[in-house]
Amino acid sequence: MIKKLMLLLMFGFIFLYALTATAPLADSFPETSIGETVIHRGYDETASKNLVAAILLDYRLFDSIFEAGILLISAAGVLYMSRSSGFSKPFPRAKEAAVPKDSDSILAVSRILYPFMLLFGFYIIVFGDLSPGGGFQGGVILATARLISVYIPEKASENTDPLNRLEKILFLCLLSLGLISLFTRGAPFTNFFSGSVDPEFRRLFLVLLNLLIGLKVSSGLTIIFIRFIKEGK
């Protein structure tokens, strides 16, 4: 009881301190100078109408690629932990546990929903530079569609090795796509078309990048998901 009271008191103190520290910020509407530049020059420099995607896919593309790399590392960690023998179950499993059968309505609904979810995910990915969305969000939706497909018996495959290889290859593709501009424009990690080309052509780079990131994110999350399901079996 005393412990909880102390904790509450401590958090109350931190809360009050943070409140007084942030009070002047509340009505001042701060704006970063980078943000202002992006708003005014973003479309001309990157050909992306969605300025958040302009920052993610052009101005700080280097960071975004290695952000996708963090997902790769996370999937590798999950794979390692679920395979390591030191932690896993000590006994060989003698008998499969009685798993309750999935209901027919779930199966029917997932059969109908699966293609639409794939379509929506690809829409979010491909139009990521014109409307809200992008590689990460669309990739997560694709992964969710894959999760639904686990309920469909004829589509379920549980081997993660090809997916793992695919994710590594996609990561290398991302890196090399980012490096193409080193040869065409002399600067790495930016659009490989120069600024004088028509924006409709320069969009190609963004769409390609979004597609690669989306496929990579979805395969990484699918690996994690399948390892979760298979864990302990």
């Binding site: 546990a97 969305g133 997560v140």
Partner: peptide, 30 residues
């Protein structure tokens, strides 16, 4: 809008599924 889309896809669809699967793995009777 972008952050909202990411949050709704990850926070209310993907992560609860992961949590439920992780919880399901913890109900074994050995």
């Amino acid at each position: 809008y972008d952050v909202a889309l990411a949050e709704i896809a990850i926070g209310s669809a993907l992560l609860p599924l992961f949590f439920i699967i992780a919880l399901g793995k913890q109900k074994n009777f050995v």
